[in-house]
């Protein structure tokens, strides 16, 4: 089927099998491999992207459902080589190890800040719990987010 996806500000007309998820469309058809596949079952958050500004798991969304919606991925976060404050804070606080969950964590953190849910340690813990990290970087992820929240 014909599907036009608006990703990171540009329209991409695609010919897709109806089964293709947003995640696979991004990764396999648009070459945007920043969003990761950790479970393909909505249980790990590695595929987190923004859909019309809200964070969603791209693995449980059909690409076809995303027409006329704006998809934002990690690839669009830094502008002309300048890292987004959340990206810079993740690097500074060593908020990752293997790095595989990191794009999802960062997209989730960006959304968390926009949702106004980075006001306290407890809020960050709870509302970042949809992103698993097997390397165990959680404390540093919180530090990075707190840092950005406090910078305003």
């Amino acid at each position: 089927m014909e599907v036009t996806l608006n990703v990171n500000g540009s329209a991409h007309p695609l010919r897709l099998d109806a089964r293709v998820t947003l995640l696979d469309a991004l990764r396999d058809h648009l070459g945007l491999t920043g969003a990761k596949k950790g479970c393909d079952q909505g249980a790990c958050g590695a595929c987190t992207v923004l859909l019309d500004g809200r964070r969603v798991v791209a693995c449980l969304t059909l690409a076809a459902q995303c027409e006329e919606r704006e998809v934002t991925t990690i690839e669009a976060l830094s502008e002309e080589g300048t890292p987004h404050p959340v990206q810079a804070a993740f690097a500074r606080h060593d908020a990752f190890q293997c790095g595989y969950c990191t794009p999802g964590q960062i997209m989730s953190a960006v959304a968390l800040l926009a949702e106004g849910r980075a006001g306290s340690e407890e809020e960050i813990r709870e509302f970042m719990s949809g992103n698993l990290c097997r390397c165990g970087a959680y404390p540093n992820i919180r530090k990075a987010i707190r840092d950005v929240a406090e910078e305003g």
Partner: peptide
Amino acid sequence: GASTQLRNL
């Protein structure tokens, strides 16, 4: 219930 990413869907 679930996570924010799922609750948005």
